[in-house]
């Protein structure tokens, strides 16, 4: 159960996405839409079962950012068993995030 959004680094991201479905939020502390999306994701996490929601700081994890071609923030990527399922850029509404998780 997600329950909350966990902050992780690039190394942990590699281990995590090899497993079950994960929603990754690439964010920056300086970005307003990122702050609002983090707030919405915390709310989403309370209602999500079986999908982990994690946050990766864009500015502190350059290797992961380059590896996954993240060029703006916020960017949400859903991974399942190591493969990218879908990605969206920018602030998203709660129902859209629920849809992404359920793809």
């Amino acid at each position: 159960m997600a329950v909350t959004v966990r902050e992780i680094n690039g190394e942990e991201l590699e281990r995590l996405i090899a497993g079950n479905k994960v929603l990754v939020d690439f964010y920056s502390k300086t970005c307003g839409p990122c702050k609002m999306l983090s707030y919405v994701l915390k709310d989403v996490a309370k209602d999500v079962d079986g999908v982990e929601i994690v946050a990766v700081d864009f500015d502190k994890n350059k290797e992961a950012v380059d590896k996954y071609g993240v060029d703006s923030y916020p960017t949400l990527i859903v991974f399942n068993k190591g493969k990218e399922v879908i990605r969206v850029k920018g602030l998203q509404q709660r129902p859209k995030i629920m849809q992404l998780i359920n793809i």
Partner: peptide, 11 residues
């Protein structure tokens, strides 16, 4: 979209 409107983009 989300609460805040345009102020979300204001640093």
């Amino acid at each position: 979209l989300a609460p805040g409107g345009q102020i979300v983009n204001t640093y």
